[in-house]
Structure formats: C-alpha cells, structure tokens
Simulated assay, not measured.
Amino acid sequence: MTAARSAGAITDQAASVAAAVWSALGTVRDPELDDSLTELGFVSHHDVTSEGKAVVRLRLPTYFCAPNFAYLMVADSYDAVSAVPGVTKADVRLEDHFAADAINTGVAARAGFVESFRGEAAAELDELRAGFLRKAVLAGTDRVCRALVASGVDPARLAELTLADAPEGPDLWRLIDRRHELDLPCRDSDALIVDPATGEAVAPDALRTHLGLARATRVSQEANSGVCRGMLAARYPDSTGENHH
C-alpha cells in the first residue's frame, strides 16, 4: 500500500469512528429534558484523530446550569464515547460553564460527583437520575395514552390495557426504554400504566389522578425543553442540533 493510500485509509477509518461517536452521543440525554444532547444542540464539536482519540466538546444553555445535571451529561458522554470501537482515548469536556474545571477533571479521573465537588456534594447522583427517569416514564405514559384516546379508546379503559395494546412507534419504544432503565415491568403483557416508583399497575380508581400528573409532567418537560433550546440559540446562534466538527 502506498503512503497516500495508507493515509487515506486512516482518514476514512477516523471518519467512520467519528460517525460512531456522534451516534453514541445521540444516546446521551439531558436528565431533566429527556432529550438527546445531539438533538438539543449541546454537542459543539466532535472529532477523532488518526490515533483514535475522540475529542468532544459540550455546551449548555447558560453559564450557571445546575452542576449536578451538567456532571451527569459529561460523565454519560464520556462513558458512551469510550465504549465506541476504535476509540483509544476519550477527551470529553464541558465549556463555558462556571463548574467546568471541577466537572471535567472529575469525569476524566472517574472520581464521581462527591469527590469532584469535595466539601460541597453530599451524595452521588443515582437518586437524581432515577427521579428524572420516573418523570420520563410519566411523560411517556401521557404521550402513549393520548394517542390511544385520540384513536377512540375510552379513557376509563386505559387501566385495563397492557403494553401490547399500545400503538407501535417512537413514543411507545421510548416509554419501554425508560421503564427498562428503572427495572420496571416492560413485557407486552405488563400493564400500560404503572406507578413509576413501584412498578405496580395503577388501579382504576387512581387512574384520573395519575393521568393528570402524567400530563402535567409532560407539559412541564416539553416547556422546559423549549426554554432551554431558546436560551441555547440566544447564547450560541450556530446551535441547531446538527453535527458540529
């Protein structure tokens, strides 16, 4: 193989790995908004060197976004990128954030949130993550149930339905994914509407209250997402949710 062909092969391989890195970043979500970082426009740069080093830069809507949320996104991005075949090293950093140094140093050292914010943080972020996942299950339940009611299903019958009764599509798949992450029942035969804290099916007499909470959670989540997208666009006019090299 000539030197030119060898260089071309290396470039093609790096581009292929970079595409896989972008796909991996698409699996990382803002914990509060339950949307992917790539869709939200939070990834400002990603690239892979010929040696396999993945370079990723993240940005958030404001300089003062909550450091615990930011830490989760940077740590999850680091894990997702590091797992991509062909990546030999991950260099994932948050930019333009008041706690960027502590977050970036802690994530790179695999130190955990408490150690990264020694003297300030009292606990790791597992419960925070679980709490947002429970909200994602509520919001997802509302989306699926709204589609069922729109198709003619009597709202009073929703408590009788299973996951197999829901229409196939992104909303159902997303709901099942979130339930799976919480170790909630997610087989076809399992109840469509469950308490996200326990996994127990919601009883008919509690259905109206539960669906009201689910709707409020979805509306709040979508409103927050809209606000964050608007603030990011104001801060970074080039933020479109597309791939940035």
Rank of each mutant, 00 (worst) to 15 (best):
M1T: 03
M1E: 13
A3Y: 14
A4S: 11
I10T: 03
D12R: 15
D12W: 11
A14I: 08
S16A: 11
V17D: 08
S23V: 10
L25C: 04
D30E: 04
D34A: 11
L37C: 10
L37K: 09
L37T: 10
L37R: 11
E39A: 08
S44A: 10
H46A: 15
S50D: 14
E51M: 15
G52L: 14
V56F: 06
L58I: 09
R59S: 04
F64R: 15
F64H: 12
A66F: 03
P67V: 12
A70Q: 12
A70G: 04
A75N: 14
D76A: 13
S77E: 07
Y78D: 07
D79P: 00
V81P: 00
S82D: 08
V84F: 06
K89T: 06
V92R: 11
V92M: 07
A99V: 01
F113G: 00
V114Q: 14
R118H: 09
G119L: 13
A121K: 15
A122W: 05
E127P: 00
L128R: 09
K135V: 01
K135W: 07
A136W: 05
A136E: 06
A136L: 04
A139Q: 08
T141Y: 09
A150N: 10
A150F: 01
G152M: 08
A156T: 10
L158K: 11
E160F: 02
E160T: 08
L161G: 01
L161K: 06
L161S: 02
L163M: 06
G169W: 03
P170Q: 00
L172R: 13
W173F: 09
R174A: 05
L175W: 08
L175E: 03
R179Q: 05
L184F: 02
P185C: 05
D188A: 15
L192W: 09
P196L: 02
P196S: 04
A203G: 00
A206C: 04
L213D: 04
A214N: 03
R218E: 08
V219E: 12
Q221D: 04
E222A: 06
A223S: 07
S225L: 05
S225M: 02
C228P: 06
R229T: 10
L232R: 08
S239Q: 12
G241L: 02
G241I: 02
